[in-house]
């Protein structure tokens, strides 16, 4: 099928993009990498959208250190995150995740801001940034706003970004010297959305676990985290399986997903400890 688009405008800077959004009568749609949006437009999941292309806004691009935090611009592409030395050093989870996201040609265009704003519970980056306790920075007509990752995801494809706001960057604490970050998932074909996945972080304050593809939004698996902090691996796996109520669909049943997260958590723990599961 073909897209039915209401109009297109190329934003020259963030202010211009916000003005365009404000002038669009609720029909405005930010176009970042287009790897989810243009697919949806081609399928006519929506029509008449007024597209605001943010790809020329340099201020939204790139990775930098900001005090003791790592800052990643919204328009940083998956392939750039995969190859960025600051990301590899300070947020290795994001680098590892890029191996699992889609295919090379899609990673060349897709952006981290787009992936977060899209908020697909089967996507890797939303789970990762919650596991890393990141902050999402947005800008709207009334100025900038910071949203903790734990308050950002609401439901399938729904976030707390308001109409008229644009996601500008994320920032996250730099990994501690002893910190470990791993991601494990299962997909039917390399690059497909995962049937289930587990992000696991171990830092001085304790473990953080967030699953992929098991609910409407990424959530911290607090019960399993507490078991793992107590050194109880089997208890953590049991707590994780108990806490989840995953969906059944054509890809996998709920029972199969619940089984998989346990297997994946075992693998993630072994990986964290430098063993092979």
């Amino acid at each position: 099928m073909k897209a039915s688009v209401g109009g297109y405008a190329r934003a020259t800077d963030l202010r211009h993009a916000l003005d365009l959004l404000a002038a669009s009568d609720g029909m405005g749609r930010v176009l970042a990498g287009g790897q989810s949006l243009i697919a949806a437009l081609n399928m006519r999941l929506s029509s008449g959208d007024l597209l605001i292309d943010i790809n020329s806004i340099d201020a939204l691009k790139g990775v930098s250190l900001d005090g003791n935090r790592l800052r990643i611009g919204a328009l940083t592409r998956h392939a750039e995150i995969a190859n960025d030395p600051l990301v590899a050093q300070h947020a290795p989870l994001l680098r590892k995740a890029t191996d699992l996201i889609a295919h090379a040609a899609i990673r060349n265009r897709g952006t981290i801001g787009g992936a977060l704003a899209h908020a697909d519970p089967a996507a890797e980056f939303p789970a990762c940034i919650l596991a890393l306790d990141a902050t999402i920075h947005v800008e709207g007509p009334d100025g900038p706003r910071d949203i903790p990752a734990s308050d950002f995801f609401v439901d399938v494809f729904v976030t707390t970004i308001n109409d008229g706001e644009i996601l500008t960057a994320i920032s996250l604490p730099m990994a501690e010297a002893e910190e470990r970050q791993v991601i494990h998932e299962l997909a039917r074909r390399s690059g497909d959305y995962a049937l289930a996945g587990v992000c696991l972080v171990r830092r001085a304050a304790g473990h953080r676990i967030v699953c992929i593809s098991v609910g409407p939004r990424p959530e911290l698996a607090t019960a399993a985290m507490a078991r793992l902090d107590a050194g109880d691996t089997d208890g953590a796996v049991a707590a994780l399986r108990d806490a989840l109520d995953p969906p059944s669909d054509t890809q996998a049943t709920a029972a199969y997903r619940r089984h998989l997260v346990g297997v994946l958590l075992h693998r993630a723990i072994a990986d964290l400890n430098g063993e092979t599961a």
């Binding site: 099928m1 073909k2 297109y8 190329r10 176009l31 287009g34 790897q35 243009i38 697919a39 081609n42 399928m43 597209l51 292309d53 790809n55 392939a79 889609a102 295919h103 090379a104 040609a105 899609i106 060349n108 265009r109």
Partner: peptide, 29 residues
Amino acid sequence: CEHGVCGACTVRVDGQAVRGCLMLAAQAD
């Protein structure tokens, strides 16, 4: 497929392989 899954539309843009169906012609300016 026109939603990025099949790869039959892959072309090279600014030195990189991309999905031709997931980029607007307007963006190729």
